[in-house]
Nucleic acid binder design. Structure first.
Length: 474
RNA sequence: GGCGACGUAGCCAAGUGGUAAGGCAGGGCUCUGCAAAAGCCCCAUUCGGCAGUUCAAAUCUGCCCGUCGCCUCCA
């Protein structure tokens, strides 16, 4: 069965077939690091990470490009506010963003091009547009002439006349038409700038994506497979990209599929940098398990508007615990497995326009654990919820820092263990063994003392019918 | 004003013509030295409202109500 994806441009779900034989090419509009990233960014990039994982899972080679808009009005403004250089501001916010992505299981893009490193390609693109009559030089910059591109509005399904009629398009004296947009902005005194044939300045917001996607994914000018981003980018950003790119192509369209992630609302209201009603992503990830955050997003269709509250975050944590319990059960059961039935269910769900909610329900099915650890692992990994040592609670690498010190502090008299000369994992195993013995002889005082000591070291002990297990307290 | 999305149990959410997935919360049972968890079971005669099409509708059509988004920086 083919993967079916919703295409914004056609407003329909279509079968995905790569344009070229040598793999799938994806361009996703990345971050403008002029402020802290928020959960809405996380939702979007988690989805495109998932799409990429699934294409790889299906055996495609995938080239995934995600740009970094490192120069724009806001990074200049942020620099002015903080007294730092604009590129320092960008570096700082981007590093924090990358750190959050890593925690969320979002893998690094294959290429992360910075706008300012592609200025020659950008200038070349603008020059071509000028040559072909799609652009003009004005007093304060170079502008794209929207009227020169007849299919303008096709992606976002807007008509030029309607846009013209909209009272909210700012009137700018320098432009020939209110709909025209900047390709190149001449620098005002003190602003960072790059030389160009028309005057020193900086790229307009949209042009970098046209120049960089062409340079990195489509040198032939026949388009690439998937262009992604948040739904708020459909207009004007992606519409403008199309207008810039397609007149210069051998064979439009720019992208076979335009895939957009639904926006995330916080307590019923849109989050955005300009509204400022968001909590920084890094802060959310300090309070909540990043895997629970990822899981929360998997419960809702990627393209839908989604509202989140503190409660939904907490509910996701419970779901994660269930998954872990299921995984543990599978790990200890060593059953024959179901021979791929679980993965097949998940693949079928993802084939249906990446229906993660249904995929997840397969994983939460009581029968899921019968699939066996290996298949369960693959399924979880496919969704980016890769089980780590803490899921299995056996291996040792997950022992909290200062485990030994804390246990030693609690256990003032060592019960036949040399805490100083022993590895943490050996101490742990030893203490667990001692406690099992204590329980066997119904020495509840000793048993509880050991439980308490282990708890101090960050280890929670569970006794059940099968015996004693432990887990790292997160 | 133009364009669009959504409205399914207390909450989140899948399903888009064939008779309501899944999760959270809640309730019951089993297990249990403690502590904690786990397992099993129950939990919408009904899908914002009203008409209509159909043998059959949460799913299609029309109208109405409500919430949100885009049209300006935005993932």
């Amino acid at each position: 069965m083919p993967l079916r994806l919703y295409n914004t441009r056609t407003r329909s779900t279509q079968s995905f077939v790569p344009l070229r034989d040598d793999g799938v090419r994806i361009y996703v509009c990345g971050l403008t690091p002029s402020a802290q990233a928020h959960l809405g960014h996380a939702r979007s990039f988690i989805f495109f990470d998932l799409l990429r994982r699934y294409l790889l899972h299906r055996g495609y080679r995938v080239t995934y490009v995600q740009n970094v808009t490192d120069i724009d009005d806001r990074s200049i403004a942020a620099a002015a506010e903080t007294g730092k250089r604009w590129d320092e501001v960008v570096a700082q916010f981007y590093a924090s963003f990358k750190d959050s992505m890593k925690k969320l299981g979002v893998r690094d893009p294959d290429v992360e091009p910075y706008a300012t490193r592609y200025v020659p390609q950008i200038i070349e693109t603008i020059a071509s547009l000028l040559e072909r009559g799609h652009a003009y030089v004005a007093q304060d910059g170079v502008y794209y002439r929207v009227a020169s591109f007849p299919s303008y509005g096709e992606l976002s399904h807007r008509r030029i006349e309607e846009l013209e009629a909209g009272a909210r398009v700012a009137i700018d004296e320098a432009k020939d038409d209110p709909l025209d947009f900047a390709l190149w902005k001449f620098a005002k005194p003190g602003e960072p700038s790059w030389p160009s044939p028309w005057g020193s300045g900086r790229p307009g917001w949209h042009i970098e994506c046209s120049a960089m996607s062409r340079a990195l994914l489509d040198p032939e000018g026949i388009g690439f497979d998937i262009h992604g981003g948040g739904a708020d980018l459909i207009f004007p950003h992606h519409e403008n990209e199309v207008a810039q790119s397609e007149p210069l192509m051998e064979r439009p369209p720019m992208a076979q599929f335009w895939v957009h992630g639904g926006l995330l609302l916080r307590d019923g209201k849109k989050m955005s940098k300009s509204l400022g009603n968001f909590e920084p992503l890094a802060q959310v990830l300090d309070r909540h398990d990043p895997q629970a955050v990822r899981l929360m997003f998997l419960q809702t269709g990627y393209g839908k508007v989604m509202n989140y509250t503190e409660e939904s975050l907490l509910a996701a944590r419970s779901v994660l615990e269930r998954l872990k319990a299921s995984y543990r059960a599978a790990a200890s059961a060593r059953g024959p497995g179901t021979g791929g039935a679980l993965l097949a269910r998940i693949e079928a769900a993802l084939d249906d326009d990446m229906n993660t909610a249904v995929a997840l329900s397969a994983l939460l099915d009581a029968k899921a654990r019968e699939a066996g650890v290996e298949e369960l692992y693959s399924a979880l990994d496919l969704l980016g919820l890769t089980p780590d040592v803490a899921w299995e609670q056996s291996p040792i690498a997950a022992l909290p820092p200062q485990f030994l010190e804390r246990v030693a502090a609690e256990l003032s008299v060592g019960p036949g263990i040399d805490l100083d000369a022993t590895k943490p994992q050996e101490v742990l195993e030893r203490l667990i063994a001692l406690r099992v013995q204590a329980r066997a002889r119904k020495d509840w005082a000793e048993s509880d003392r050991l439980r308490k000591a282990l708890a101090a070291g960050g280890i929670e002990v569970h006794d059940d019918r099968e015996g004693t297990t432990w887990s790292v307290v997160s």
